[in-house]
Simulated scan of single mutants.
Amino acid sequence: MPPGATGSRGPAGDVTSGDDEAGEVRRFWRRLGLPGLIDVHTHFMPERVLHKVWDYFDEQGPLTAGLEWPITYRQAEEERTALLRRFGVRAFTSMLYPHKPGMARWLNGWAADFARRTLDCLHTATLYPEPGVESYVREALGAGARVFKAHVQVGAYDPADELLRPAWAALAEAGVPVVIHCGSGPAPGEHTGPGPVARVLARHPGLRLVVAHLGMPEYEDFLGLAERYEQVRLDTTMVFTDFTEKLMPFPRRALSRLARLGDRVLLGSDFPNIPYAYAHQLHALERLGLGREWLRAVCHDNAAKLFGL
């Protein structure tokens, strides 16, 4: 979709109007008797940074595994926030992440300002293994950060790096969740997979990690970590959609484990950087057949409890 377009792409690539899709999304959560949705995995970042991310997807960079990945919601910031509100998303995040030293503190400053002017955004911060990381993590916590983002794949770092140890300790002590992209999808990195995260949790068992994308494609390994550590959660970002099922299908034998962890699974979408309509993620969850109460918990209640909403 060209920059500035106001529609969205359906699962088959068809463009639908924002109003039509908003109605579809609202009907979904109203059927469940919910007051709306809470999406813990949405991306807002400085516009020039976000446009570089979009360029990377357009160019099918290595971390996209060479996949064709059209950005469905390639709109200005105020249009994207307005669309989430039309969808009935009560709270969302500004997931952002550094890919080199010296970026995280600057990104955190931008995110704090975004949260101040966007009251339905959960104040988000980030981190990177570098000298001073504990200091700026504590600064962000002091400024009211409610969720952090860590991206092991893009940052190309070991989450068990000694430089991060005091930062993880501070986050565990504060009880602030960290959404962490640590699975090896869509393309593996040197430090992706369950091993490095398991080492972090062995040191900080109370750390509230939210494993992004259900840890794709190492789904079952990350389910195991959630079963072992009661503060570990998982988000649904892109999982079960037609796009992902063709590439990294979730094993049906593991659905019963996912059902049992229903109080620790959170809705995530990757909005706006998704190659299909937002509503498709919701219908993909619904068609799992795990029941109304599981859907209610995943799409709203679990995050409402975690963030005190």
Rank of each mutant, 00 (worst) to 15 (best):
residue 247 L to E: 10
residue 268 G to L: 02
residue 235 D to I: 05
residue 212 A to G: 01
residue 269 S to R: 06
residue 277 A to G: 13
residue 285 L to F: 10
residue 249 P to A: 00
residue 242 D to I: 10
residue 240 F to R: 13
residue 220 E to Q: 10
residue 246 K to D: 14
residue 270 D to G: 01
residue 245 E to W: 06
residue 225 L to P: 01
residue 217 P to C: 05
residue 278 Y to S: 02
residue 236 T to L: 06
residue 267 L to G: 08
residue 258 L to C: 14
residue 260 R to F: 04
residue 262 G to F: 07
residue 232 V to Q: 00
residue 254 A to T: 15
residue 283 H to C: 12
residue 239 V to K: 03
residue 267 L to T: 10
residue 218 E to H: 05
residue 242 D to P: 10
residue 224 G to S: 13
residue 284 A to L: 09
residue 237 T to W: 00
residue 222 F to Q: 07
residue 245 E to T: 11
residue 247 L to H: 12
residue 224 G to W: 09
residue 214 L to D: 01
residue 214 L to I: 04
residue 263 D to H: 05
residue 218 E to G: 04
residue 235 D to E: 10
residue 256 S to C: 09
residue 266 L to Q: 09
residue 214 L to Y: 01
residue 216 M to P: 03
residue 233 R to L: 11
residue 276 Y to C: 05
residue 236 T to I: 05
residue 222 F to P: 14
residue 223 L to W: 10
residue 285 L to E: 09
residue 262 G to R: 08
residue 248 M to V: 12
residue 247 L to C: 07
residue 220 E to N: 07
residue 225 L to I: 05
residue 279 A to I: 12
residue 252 R to D: 10
residue 245 E to D: 12
residue 275 P to E: 03
residue 256 S to Q: 13
residue 259 A to K: 15
residue 279 A to M: 05
residue 233 R to S: 13
residue 234 L to C: 04
residue 279 A to C: 08
residue 255 L to C: 13
residue 228 R to H: 15
residue 217 P to I: 09
residue 275 P to H: 03
residue 284 A to D: 09
residue 240 F to H: 15
residue 235 D to V: 04
residue 257 R to P: 08
residue 235 D to N: 11
residue 283 H to S: 15
residue 220 E to Y: 05
residue 229 Y to F: 07
residue 213 H to G: 03
residue 268 G to R: 04
residue 285 L to M: 13
residue 237 T to R: 00
residue 219 Y to C: 02
residue 269 S to M: 08
residue 262 G to V: 06
residue 252 R to T: 11
residue 268 G to F: 01
residue 255 L to S: 14
residue 268 G to N: 03
residue 284 A to Q: 07
residue 228 R to D: 12
residue 221 D to P: 13
residue 221 D to A: 15
residue 280 H to I: 02
residue 284 A to K: 09
residue 228 R to T: 15
residue 267 L to S: 09
residue 225 L to R: 05
residue 244 T to E: 11
residue 209 L to K: 07
residue 219 Y to V: 00
residue 268 G to T: 04
residue 248 M to K: 11
residue 240 F to A: 14
residue 220 E to W: 05
residue 274 I to C: 01
residue 211 V to S: 03
residue 254 A to N: 14
residue 226 A to M: 12
residue 252 R to L: 12
residue 227 E to R: 07
residue 215 G to N: 06
residue 255 L to D: 14
residue 210 V to W: 07
residue 272 P to H: 00
residue 267 L to P: 03
residue 210 V to C: 11
residue 278 Y to W: 02
residue 277 A to V: 03
residue 284 A to Y: 06
residue 243 F to P: 03
residue 219 Y to L: 04
residue 245 E to F: 07
residue 213 H to Y: 06
residue 222 F to K: 08
residue 230 E to D: 11
residue 230 E to G: 09
residue 232 V to S: 00
residue 241 T to S: 12
residue 212 A to K: 02
residue 271 F to A: 00
residue 224 G to E: 09
residue 266 L to W: 08
residue 269 S to T: 15
residue 233 R to Q: 14
residue 257 R to D: 12
residue 251 P to K: 15
residue 240 F to K: 13
residue 234 L to Y: 06
